[in-house]
Design a protein around this nucleic acid. Structure first.
Length: 683
DNA sequence: AGGCCTCGAGTTCA
DNA sequence: CTCGAGGCCT
């Protein structure tokens, strides 16, 4: 970029940032997301670094905080409330550790890791144990006097639990939980008031109400992190940050229960990693981890720079939202023939991983969001893993972006495509579309279907392209001679694959039924159908009425099964599977007691003694149903390690939650009673 | 017809 | 995980 141009861009960015600062800090009504704001700031920082001659004292990059609103009295903090330097990856944490170690003398070096709450910083002043002042951080030197509002927060003590002579200054973070935030927004929506963008803004807006009566109705909460000042206590002042935390807790100030004392930087890194992963399970939002040298003497010795202490650092999580550009929109064909557009993105880090693709679902989704090739878009993680395109940023349009048009022919086989009126999906009409065939084979061999290890997307592609198989039945005709010599196939891998194919013949018929991929017949319906008819041939020859008579099987499912069987190609396919020796008939079942019959279980989180599948299997063996979502009809939720949202749902609905131990005991008890019963039978 | 509840299908990255 | 849609109950 040429210098004159850079200068113009710098000025434009500054004006924009100032404007958004004002909206954010003064009016508490931001128009853009934090991520967008950060992007503006980052661009400005980069330009100023490249052109230092244009840096001015009043640039927003030189300012520590925002301007205080006029209505509150400003007060000077007894000690400056510094901000923190940031680390954006573990490498920067290691560098921090090296800097700390240079200053360490004989004392053992330990750190404290704390969640960095996304709220707003406050400083509370207690005089002889009584709360006399509460102030926002402001620019770090002077903040706003919000004492009256602070007093309304229930978790903040107006008096410390013991009388502490002299002045005590503590630093904390006021925040709102996600649940409270949503509840507040629901109320505001009902009342026709503007909504808060996120919990942070809701907390800030609530604390900065001119009328403390309003603040009192807002569900604010607070954690306290630092004892900044304790006058006249030189001899009793704690030696470490960890002890200071304990002291605050003793005094009745709420401290974050997840803080951790770490013996090394490696433990700190582990702590950061852990919370970056689990952040979404917390009731409050965190945007990073604050790392502090535990020894207060060492903190003192390391001192501060103009704006931040050298003995502390904030490890910032990668943002949950990020910007990137749509390079291309691909169209994939699934096993049901549905054409699914997929955005190929410039890789970008978001929510702890690098994202390069995101589904665009269907034509309507793209039209609604007006996503075009070349657009800059906002990406977010839906749930823990799956990235989604939130919206486009039209400001970044240059006019060269190309709108997406759903192809009129299947990109895999060239057949015409068809969209049922009223349906979102576009289907490929090609009867032997290779993309569809491949997806069907992959599904057939997948874990929950026939579980043929070694037959995944890559191998299926290879086998179909080489003309070795045309459908899943072809797998059972493969010979070692077909495979050996193929790229990435040696004698051993060929043998393994054939063994896996052979083993799959023993699968029970419900797996086979599911593997066929009949529309509306998933794992659960396959189990029910086999449970009822016991034989695939009986299912395929059943009349519509007989099918509908099965609980949970309605007309749509019955018709889908009949339609499948009317297709000559499918009937022939089934005969080939039969000849290969696959099981069409269910094993005779012994009449086992089903003590959990009629009970519905939901599993969440990871169990230590089982995989999820094994636990489900064990429950089904006892007659229980295992479903995937919690409702009023759920009898028990079994919660393992790191339970997901289902745990919360269970609590909300008052469904009993079993720990893994309780669950294991339940199984053991039931099996014991079962054994006794069968012994009595034998006698 | 509407309101559950559950299942099916598609989804990404390490 | 999140949609959308099927099935069943009121």
């Amino acid at each position: 970029m040429e210098a004159g141009e850079a200068k113009k861009r710098i000025e434009k960015l500054r004006a924009a940032i100032e404007y958004h600062n004002y909206l954010y800090y003064v009016l508490d009504a931001p128009e853009i997301s934090d991520a967008e704001y950060d992007a503006l700031m980052k661009e400005l920082l980069a330009l100023e670094a490249a052109y230092p001659q244009f840096v001015t004292a009043d640039s927003p990059t030189q300012r520590v905080g925002g301007a205080p609103a006029e209505a509150f009295r400003t007060v000077a903090h007894p000690l400056p409330l510094l901000s923190l330097n940031n680390a954006y990856d573990t490498g920067e944490l290691m560098e921090f550790d090296r800097r700390v170690k240079k200053q360490t003398l004989a004392e053992p070096l330990t750190y404290v890791g704390e969640q960095k709450i996304d709220g707003l910083t406050v400083a509370l002043l207690y005089q002889d144990g009584v709360l006399v002042q509460g102030a926002t951080r402001g620019d770090g030197l002077r903040g706003e006097d919000v004492t009256a509002n602070i007093r309304t927060i229930r978790s903040i003590p107006l008096k410390l639990r013991e009388k502490i002579p002299g002045r005590v200054l503590v630093r904390g973070e006021v925040f709102m939980t996600r649940d409270s935030f949503q509840e507040l927004n629901r109320e505001r929506e009902r009342a026709g008031q503007p909504l808060f963008a996120n919990p942070r803004n809701a907390a800030a807006g609530s604390l900065r109400q001119l009328d403390p009566g309003v603040t009192a109705t807002r569900p604010l909460d607070a954690f306290f992190y630092d004892l900044l000042l304790w006058e006249g206590a030189a001899s009793t002042f704690p030696a470490t940050h960890w002890e200071a935390q304990a002291l605050l807790k003793e005094w009745g100030l709420k401290v974050n229960p997840y803080s951790r004392l770490c013996a090394s930087i490696e433990e700190v890194v582990e702590y950061c990693r852990e919370w970056e992963e689990k952040r979404s399970t917390l009731p409050w939002e965190i945007d990073g981890v604050v790392v502090k040298v535990n020894s207060l003497a060492l903190q003192e010795r390391m001192g501060t720079t103009a704006k931040a202490p050298r003995a502390k650092i904030a490890y910032k999580f990668s943002p949950e939202e990020a910007f990137t550009r749509v390079r291309e929109i691909q169209v994939n064909v699934g096993r049901t023939g549905v054409l699914t557009p997929l955005a190929i993105l410039e890789p970008v880090r978001v929510g702890g991983s690098t994202v390069g693709r995101a589904t665009l679902h269907n034509e309507d989704f793209i039209r609604e969001k007006d996503i075009r090739v070349g657009d800059v878009v906002v990406i977010r993680k839906a749930g823990e893993i799956i990235p989604e395109v939130v919206r486009v940023v039209p400001e970044h349009r240059t006019g060269t972006e190309k709108p997406f048009i759903m192809p009129a022919r299947c990109p895999a086989c060239g057949a015409a495509v068809y969209r049922e009126p009223g349906e979102a999906a576009v289907h490929c009409l090609g009867a032997s579309c290779p993309a569809q065939q491949k997806e069907k084979i992959i599904h057939f061999a997948s874990k929950n279907a026939m579980d043929i290890a070694g037959v995944g997307p890559a191998v299926v592609n290879l086998l179909v392209d080489k003309g070795l198989i045309k459908d899943a039945a072809g797998l059972y005709d493969l010979t070692a001679g077909d495979l050996v010599g193929l790229e990435r196939f040696g004698a051993k891998s060929a043998e393994n694959l054939l063994a896996a194919v052979e083993r799959s013949k023993e699968n029970p018929p419900e797996r086979l039924l599911f593997a066929l991929g009949i529309r509306h017949v998933g794992e659960e319906m396959a189990r029910r159908l086999v449970g009822h008819f016991r034989d695939l041939d009986r299912i395929f020859t059943a009349t519509r009425e007989e099918l509908v008579a099965v609980p949970e099987i309605g007309e749509a499912i019955a018709d889908s099964i009949r339609r499948y069987m009317e297709e000559a190609q499918n009937r022939e396919f089934l005969e080939r599977l039969r000849r290969a020796g696959l099981k069409f008939k269910a094993e005779e079942r012994e009449a086992v007691a089903e003590p959990l019959e009629g009970k519905t279980f939901v599993l969440t989180g990871a169990l230590a003694a089982f995989t999820r599948e094994e636990a489900e299997e064990a429950l089904r063996g006892l007659g229980a149903r295992v479903t995937s979502s919690v409702s009023k009809k759920t009898d028990y939720v079994v919660a393992g390690e790191n339970p997901g949202s289902k745990y919360q749902k269970a609590m909300d609905l008052g469904v009993p939650v079993l720990t893994e131990d309780e669950f294991l005991r339940l199984l053991a008890d039931l099996r014991a009673t079962e054994r006794e019963a069968s012994q009595r039978r034998d006698n």
